[in-house]
Amino acid sequence: MDNELDKGVLRHPLLLWTGWLVGPAAWALHLMGSYLLISRACETGAMWTLHGMTLVTLLMALVGVAVAWRQWDRAGRRWPGSGDGKVSRIRFMAVMGWLISALSALLIVAEGVPNFFLSPCL
């Protein structure tokens, strides 16, 4: 029964980590990438590279949200409890996954906003 359940919800149990990892990776990429691009942006005045960075990594984090949300959806979209054996564990991993990715997306947005207001040369 266990394996059938897994099949119905995901291809591989390792995929349950997607939301946990993709979001934070996108955010780390955004932080480092933007930080590196600042001096370039100051020289060339090309702020679009910074905005581009934000957009791309934001999309990446949202993909993390989407994947984890789908897993949650298939596992019954209920808040994870501690009983129920395996379904409950899948829900737990999926809910954690999309929340982590969502928080990462929020971080990326929060870091992207100053790009519109501050000059890169200060």
């Binding site: 955010w27 780390a28 932080l31 933007s34 930080y35 600042i38 001096s39 100051c42 928080l103 929020l106 971080l107 929060a110 870091e111 906003v113 100053p114 790009n115 501050l118 000059s119 890169p120 040369c121 200060l122």
Partner: peptide
Amino acid sequence: VSFGLWVHHMFTTGLPQLGMSFFTAASAT
């Protein structure tokens, strides 16, 4: 998230302002 805050210890070192603002965002989040 605690890995994205370290520059807030360096606010008075003359780093680019925009760069520092990223870390303020994370510090607040």
